[in-house]
Design a protein around this nucleic acid. Structure first.
Lengths: 231, 231
DNA sequence: GCCTGCGATTGATGAACATCAAGCGGGCTG
DNA sequence: CAGCCCGCTTGATGTTCATCAATCGCAGGC
């Protein structure tokens, strides 16, 4: 592990509050591994072996069924993922692959379950993390059911702007085809979506999106004051 | 509380394993209330006051935005709901209303959070419940993104058949318009969906659905061996 | 420098689904 | 029992989105 990374991982909401001894137990049982781009980390249906913590790189979680497939989430560092499968010890509902070369901390699933049982602080953090993840999924599902594609795109841009400082400059960090899949649309329609939003306050140049007229963009995208609340 | 109900609630996965004294603390701080049909229990955006446990009746959780609305879940007894909002103390992401006259146990949210902190068994049960709920949402989102409407309907029938004994007789317990909204389609299209599935192994008569040719229904609906696994 | 490959774009067409508009039928009320 | 209401169904039409096909533009390799 590189200097500075261990504290960064220890400072994740998931591990921050836990007993130091137990945290050492977690860390000493885990190992950091480097993966090349486009490598499948695990497949839908497998029993979870490890809790994953993306330390550096970019990972895609995706689902597939009957020939079709869709990306469910793009994981950026530093974040843990597939916690729910690990705590329930049930098969993954999604597959995962690296998008670029990535460094991932692998925590044996059995160890996680064991330490969770012993350390109430970790259990509480896990509970909170799962609650947040659940709420994230509720948002994603309502987004998909209530909005049409260009509105979803508009809201994604507003979200990203918030995360990237709120100054109206947004950089798309994944390929547009991936973004399309995340939004539940085709790359062609994503293109048309950007075209449509050009008339509603944005400018696009490659991966650089600029919000030129926020009120117009919000009027079109109709962000929900509750669901899309910054907090 | 009617005789037999308290043990039934105490036997919920959420409360089953917890310390008896703490459970009494929960129960003595809560109250059971009867609500008429079509009553709004809470609205999207409110701070959660109570953890709800549906003891008898039927409740709809729904979301709405920009004039459109969609039902997210139909809650049957005996089940708790909106646990995630309660443990995070964040605003509801969904609204709730009774579909029929319902009896609901209201557990003050602050009490839940307090007892969760003191009782590790309850915390663990909460954690598991949230993990399951998360996985349920992952299923729902992939269902929405990967399948088209008639396939979703087919899979819902297969699911319900499993829950109702697996003998090929399924009773729809909600109005079809509600089912349509749950599946993310219009009532008109739900009708057409049933029509289409008539050619793929089902018969419909009112709220009674019969699976006449399970292989055909499965060939059409393509249930996922992992995601739609009975277990 | 030019070729090549691949992602992004643009246009034309078609499928899935929503919307609009009647009818149908069953249960409830007077 | 008749009438009516309401949910469901059925058909006709329009919108949204996917698909197919062609082109553009840029980056890497020879």
């Amino acid at each position: 592990m590189r200097p500075g990374e261990k504290p960064e991982i220890a400072n994740l909401p998931l591990f921050r509050e836990m007993h130091e001894g137990q945290r050492d137990r977690i860390f000493s049982g885990s190992f950091l591994q480097v993966f090349p781009p486009q490598l499948t980390l695990f497949e839908l249906g497998q029993r979870p072996d490890f809790l994953h913590v993306l330390v550096d790189g970019l990972v895609e979680l995706y689902a597939h069924s009957a020939g079709r497939d869709t990306t469910m989430r793009i994981v950026e560092p530093v974040t843990s993922f597939i916690l729910a499968a690990v705590v329930t010890d049930q098969p993954y509902l999604m597959s995962a692959r690296t998008l670029v070369a990535s460094r991932i901390l692998l925590v044996p699933a059995a160890l996680v379950r064991e330490v969770v049982k012993d350390d109430c602080a970790l259990m509480q953090a896990t509970m909170r993390e799962l609650a947040q993840a659940y709420r994230g999924m509720v948002r994603a599902l309502t987004d998909m059911k209530l909005r049409q594609s260009a509105e979803r795109l508009g809201n994604l841009i507003l979200d990203q702007d918030r995360l990237q400082g709120g100054n109206g400059k947004v950089v798309l960090k994944a390929e547009k085809r991936l973004l399309a899949s995340l939004l539940g649309m085709t790359p062609e329609n994503l293109s048309r979506g950007f075209g449509l939003l050009a008339a509603h306050g944005i400018e696009v140049s490659g991966a650089q999106v600029t919000i030129t007229d926020r009120p117009a963009l919000e009027a079109y995208s109709r962000p929900d004051p509750v669901r899309d609340d910054p907090a």
